[in-house]
Design a protein around this nucleic acid. Structure first.
Lengths: 230, 230
DNA sequence: TCAAAAGTGTTCCGAATACACCCATGA
DNA sequence: TCATGGGTGTATTCGGAACACTTTTGA
């Protein structure tokens, strides 16, 4: 038991994890087994330990609940509505993360807890627990905003990707169609993509060239004041 | 005394308040009377009560410590380094605020506590307590970023302002000179400024027209997909 | 009459947009 | 041989950048 002179809210973290599956943008949810909100879905999360930052807590929870590691992660917002959790005062620091879904088997095995984890398409989410619908909204808007002026979209793609995959990704996130020629012209003119001596395999049409994102070059350019924009 | 099954970090808020004084961008700091960091300066802040959101806490602290009310305020970031406060584990949700300094007497009277509050120019800050230098850095960068694609600069100016004042403000925040004609052309072309039937008074040169920002029109345009950009 | 800031248009250049056809591949 | 997506260039338009002089006012 721990006692304090003044009352303290509990502090938790929640993670909105985006992944790209073929032509669909998805988020990872976990089904709640117990009340409150038994049967509802929620973002993975948990309480912050005393010897870890909130970011460390978010990564730990993610690892524990889904086995996912080493993803791109960023703080989203802190949610502190007094009644957001019926069990009592809980303030939650939300993070959002981008993962290369291709790195995982299609189903993320929920961990120890025998909780069920599943990827849902972003515009077909089931009923969410707590204020998680609000959290998702903030996360998705942040992603839409950020993807345009920082090259974080690549975090969702496999190491090697085609220009069409990249374009489709942007079309999904920004929710509008882009012109193929203009898109290619612009993205290639930045000089951040490396053309690989490889092509797509096993497709029943002309095989596309594969590219990878040159992170090192991006860091260099960024330091010189270059700004990614799409 | 309050007792919990698991230990909990304390939860506080800190506010970075920006104000514009003539030709200088300033932030409000409070001198610490006691250890830790006695004699250092810190952003106003305090602990979050159980019946208020973090945003409410930030506004309350600001009101208590400085008397400032009704300013533009936005959540900045949550700082959770394990050792950021030598007294123990304290997680702090930081906010930044923009105030019309013209609304206040030049010196903000520090409140009850007999703490000394003072406005400092943003590039001549005294030594700051805790991780407040880091907080300031994040806040200033956020301001620089946000001011370009949201019309928040107006929150720093008086109701009625001249185009030169507006331009100077942007030059200060973005830290670069802007061309007068291009600036005016662009800002006026947005149709968000209302020309008032008034002019500057008591200046020893040609008196400038006064304008005000049309917030209602901005909301309308924003809803239609217009995006402010400078 | 001087100093100091207000106010005002045009030209040029580069980037964004619009747009259509042939190519390679496996089924 | 057909269906499917891969790959490519040009003309036009629009917005950003550069740039200098006249006007007004109070000291």
């Amino acid at each position: 038991m721990y006692t304090y002179e003044y009352p303290r809210p509990a502090l938790s973290v929640d993670c909105v994890i985006f992944g790209l599956n073929d032509d669909e943008l998805k988020v990872l949810l976990i089904e709640r087994a117990h009340d409150p909100y038994a049967g509802y879905w929620a973002f993975p999360g948990g309480f912050v330990d005393m010897d870890e930052t909130t970011e460390e807590a978010a990564k730990r929870e993610l690892q524990e609940e889904t086995g996912i590691q080493n993803m791109y992660m960023e703080q989203l917002y802190t949610f502190s509505d007094v009644n957001r959790d019926p069990r009592g005062r809980v303030v939650s620091v939300a993070y959002y993360a981008l993962v290369k879904l291709s790195d995982f088997t299609n189903q993320v095995h929920a961990s120890s807890d025998a909780k069920r984890a599943e990827w849902f398409q972003v515009n077909h989410l089931p009923p969410l627990a707590f204020d998680h619908a609000k959290i998702f909204e903030v996360a998705f808007n942040r992603l839409k905003g950020k993807v345009r002026y920082q090259p974080i979209g690549f975090e969702l793609l496999p190491e090697k990707f085609t220009l069409s995959q990249l374009q489709k990704l942007y079309e999904l996130i920004l929710d509008k169609e882009l012109d193929k020629r203009n898109f290619r012209k612009k993205i290639l003119s930045m000089g951040l993509l490396v053309e690989l001596p490889e092509r797509q395999k096993g497709v029943s049409h002309r095989a596309a060239k594969l590219y990878k994102f040159d992170k090192i070059k991006y860091k260099e350019l960024e330091a010189k004041g270059f700004s990614f924009e799409l």
